[in-house]
Amino acid sequence: MLNAGKAIKVSIYLSDGSTHHGVPVYSSILDFLFFRGVAGATVFKGVAGFGADHHMHSANLVEISDRLPIKIEFIETREKVESILGKLEEMAGSGLIEMQETTVAKPAQVSKPSKPVAPEHLKIEGNAQMMRIFISEEDRWKDKPLHEALVAAMRANDIAGVTVYRGILGYGAHGRIHKDKSLLSSHRGSIMLSAIDTAEKLRAFLPLVDQMVEAGLVVFSDVDIIKYAYRALDVEAAAEQTKPGTVSE
């Protein structure tokens, strides 16, 4: 980590066409700097220039030159630069390496906490509750189908997940037999929503269900959950929530 204060700026001048073990020199130098933990490095492509051989290289659309000048620049502490300089000289080959004293006024900040390259597969186990809500497909809440409104409300209240099932036949609190005539796009089916989360979160959501569901059945049951997830930034928080013991009584 580079701190404010005295540092060394290193510039390496290369020509575009040069290769090191078959890959462009700038690319292998950049990899080397990256894996040696250099704070940061930038590769510049020149539009024209000449070097030790006094041969002019320029970008010309008619005769596309692949030997344009390349400059790699990085800033590091003196100790770090000295530790990698030997290898850099070898890699740069015929190129020129320049060093100058510089002062870092403000070191760069890590913009985001670094994420692991490959997402890690997570398995979280714990106790939770399943809430099933039985309603009719024609039930409405503020001009919206009730099941859609419930899903939106659950999402807004951060309920872990919900699935809506349409029954092909059924009856409930309203007492009417619902028969699915999906080909006639009848909207008289029985609907079941199945939501899973911790007991506390589902109970906290219940007052909303009270308001929204006029006629229907809400069924709670205890479930053991096994949750598969990819490691995300907030995984620690999620693991905290679903840790057995903090989940339900």
Binding site: A173, H174, V209, D210, V213, E214, A215, G216, V219, S221
Partner: peptide, 14 residues
């Protein structure tokens, strides 16, 4: 399975 149920019934007024 044993479950806990809350049943909402439309009252005649509603």
């Amino acid at each position: 399975s044993t479950v806990e149920v809350i049943r909402y019934v439309r009252t005649p007024a509603t």
